[in-house]
């Protein structure tokens, strides 16, 4: 089967400033359906730039990008928007939920812009609800973002990314704003989705977080310097179990001392 993501010698040069910045310098990459990739690298190594290219938010200066067989590098603004809407799901570091808008309405958002579809508002609602269920937030459907914890907000964002059944889920530092336990919870959600066959590409600079993925890519100065499969992969469920035990132990030992 052809890879979902296929990039060949892709370059990105920012020439808006005084000196042109060559942020991505010839990356070639195949990502197949069902993969779970972590993109790692130091700050400024071009991770976000590459993610923006993968996410069809930006066009490469040079090179070919085929998503699900479509040559994305040739599309115009509106066609890119449609690709983002129908083939991609985004999770951002800062959650980027609409303020003063309920979780459910946030999840509905991509379906409002879905073209070529005649989905009734009842079905939109139902599907948004279903996606909130997947991330375990069905009970919080009517909450506003400011009534939710960081981890819960990120799960709403994941539900929003899922709602149009994307080919690839893209996440730029999805755990960057979360504490370690919540990060593991979010990785658990990703692992569950990946088991259901969803392809995921995420950026992280945390090594332990990358260990929950199946494949790790290391980027340095705009080129991939390492591409390896993860050995001894961490399973979020187990790690959470261990964390719980540790917490319980802490309480047990703390109790008599008090």
């Amino acid at each position: 089967m052809a890879p979902v993501v296929q990039i060949q010698d892709i370059h990105k040069i920012y020439d808006s400033g005084e000196v042109p910045v060559h942020a991505v310098r010839g990356v070639s990459l195949d990502i197949h359906k069902g993969e779970f990739v972590a993109l790692m690298g130091a700050s400024g190594s071009g991770k976000s730039t590459l993610m923006n290219l993968l996410g069809a938010l930006d066009r490469p200066t040079r090179g070919i990008y085929k998503l699900d067989g479509i040559d994305v590098s040739q599309l115009d603004k509106n066609e890119l928007a449609d690709i983002r809407n129908q083939k991609l799901g985004f999770v951002f570091q800062g959650f980027n939920l609409l303020a003063r808008t309920t979780a459910l309405e946030n999840v509905e958002l991509p379906m409002l812009y879905g073209r070529h579809r005649k989905v009734s508002s009842a079905e939109i609602r139902e599907r948004a609800h279903y996606c909130l269920e997947i991330v375990g937030l069905a009970k919080r459907a009517d909450h506003m973002p400011n009534q939710l914890s960081g981890g819960q907000q990120q799960r709403v964002a994941i539900a929003r990314a899922l709602v149009n059944q994307p080919q690839v889920l893209l996440a730029d530092e999805p755990t960057g704003n979360l504490d370690s336990k919540t990060s593991v919870e979010v990785m658990g959600v990703f692992q569950k989705l990946n088991e259901q066959g969803i392809t995921i590409v995420m950026v992280t600079h945390e090594l332990d977080i990358a260990h929950y993925c199946k494949r790790n890519l290391i980027l340095r100065d705009g080129v991939v310097v390492r591409d390896e499969l993860v050995k001894d992969r961490l399973i979020a469920e187990h790690e959470l179990g261990k964390l719980k035990q540790a917490e319980a132990a802490a309480k047990l030992t703390a109790a008599p001392a008090a």
């Binding site: 980027n96 958002l109 991509p110 812009y113």
Partner: peptide, 15 residues
């Protein structure tokens, strides 16, 4: 930011 979110998830400029 709101506009950015809308555009990122597939809104056209027209929308």
């Amino acid at each position: 930011r709101e506009i950015g979110i809308r555009l990122a998830i597939g809104a056209h400029g027209k929308d």
